[in-house]
Amino acid sequence: MTAQYYNPQTGTWTACDSCSGSGLFLLNPEQALSCNNLGSWLRQSEDQRLYCEGEEISLRLPVAMLEEDARFGTVARISTLTLHHEHPDHLILLGEETLLSMLKQDWLSTLQQSQGHDLLQRALLNSIYSHERVARVLVDRLQELRLALKTAMGNRELREIVVLNRDLGELVIALRETGLILRDALRATPGDAPAYAVMEIALREQRRMEEIVNLVYERYLTVTNAYNGIIQNNAHTVMKVMTVWLALLMMPIAFIMPFHMMTILPLEHWHYLWFGLLAYVFGATLLFAVWARKHGFFAM
């Protein structure tokens, strides 16, 4: 099997050897090499992120994806999607297999209603919205980690938060790159070309999405110091409770000390003095413990 061609009549994907003719074609880099008539385009797309010649446009856009990292859990990854648009009814999408499956999943059941420039617009918007979708997942993960900080003493959660913040920043940078490519593409496309209007819409959405993702990134970045405060507070709380226990253990010793003196002691002939002294020292310590508890000294 080489490329996958979308058949709008049956609403299914079929294998094909050539990517010429009308329709939507999906292929990964290995498939592209074996596909006829794509050699020169592939070479161009490797060298440059934008190629425009009349109505023919090739764009290599960053697309945000999620992946599981053994050390940091869910993280963002920027992949690339290359769009090759020769005429209104012809679109080739080149990207890694995971990305192509994701697109097929997103477009499932709605592709039959699309045609011509709709496909280009969908592909462009999909790559733009991918950043917002990933940002949402990262923010959810960030909030989970933030809750996990409640009991954290180490730096694992904080390290993951730092990675997530950095990923959010990467999304903003990738969106800016998309904006630059689209702006260049608009400059290089004749104003009356049908693809011009599509790219103009995509550029407006890119600006909006950049503003949204950037706002989320900046807002979450500025509160990172509060997370440091939370972790420090966890350590301080443990030290506080340990200190109050230290004081509690020292109290009986302090109270009993006068009765260690080599002097004539009061009540020294009283038969129950030992019990009385124990009751006195532990009673006094207990009273202090009750008072300390009331004032939150033991609160964890």
Binding site: H236, M239, K240, T243, V244, L246, A247, M250, M251, I253, A254, F255, M257, P258, H260, M261, M262, T263, H295, G296, F297
Partner: peptide
Amino acid sequence: LFKFMAALIILVTIPLFIPGAAAMN
């Protein structure tokens, strides 16, 4: 709270050496 506890621990330590001085063998 730390400050308070540290002050309290100092106060609790004093009986260890004043009566302690009179408790030597």
